[in-house]
Amino acid sequence: MWVPFLFLLIGVGLGLLTDFSIPELYSNYLSIAILAAMDTLFGGIRAHLEKKFNQQIFISGFFFNISLAVVLTFIGQQLGVDLYLAAIFAFGLRLFKNISIIRRYIFRLPNKK
């Protein structure tokens, strides 16, 4: 169980050690990608708690969401429309929803309905 956390630490370390900087123009992509990744992670935890966890969905969702968010942002920037807001909105909404469900599971609160 501790292996994934080890990898998490390795990832953080790598990120901190990486020395190249990207232009400010692309910082949007990064934040969107992080949002997408968080969304997928919490979605995975929620699925796990609901015992509906599926590896394929999880792994594909993780990378696909990130890619989609980045592509959306890219298109938005090309068109001059802030399309990344749509991504932030959607992901943020889902993030809160997922977290609320996880909370109910953790604190064993009764589900709605």
Binding site: M1, V3, P4, F5, L6, F7, L8, L9, I10, G11, V12, G13, L14, G15, L16, T18, S21, I22, S27, L30, S31, A33, I34, A37, M38, T40, L41, G44, Q55, F58, I59, F62
Partner: peptide, 23 residues
């Protein structure tokens, strides 16, 4: 296998977070 995939995902996630923070 599950752990491996979780590890991979967490690795990517950690990397992204750290990189973004540094950036």
């Amino acid at each position: 296998g599950k752990h491996a995939i979780l590890s991979l995902v967490l690795l990517t996630f950690g990397f992204l977070i750290a990189f973004s923070y540094q950036h």
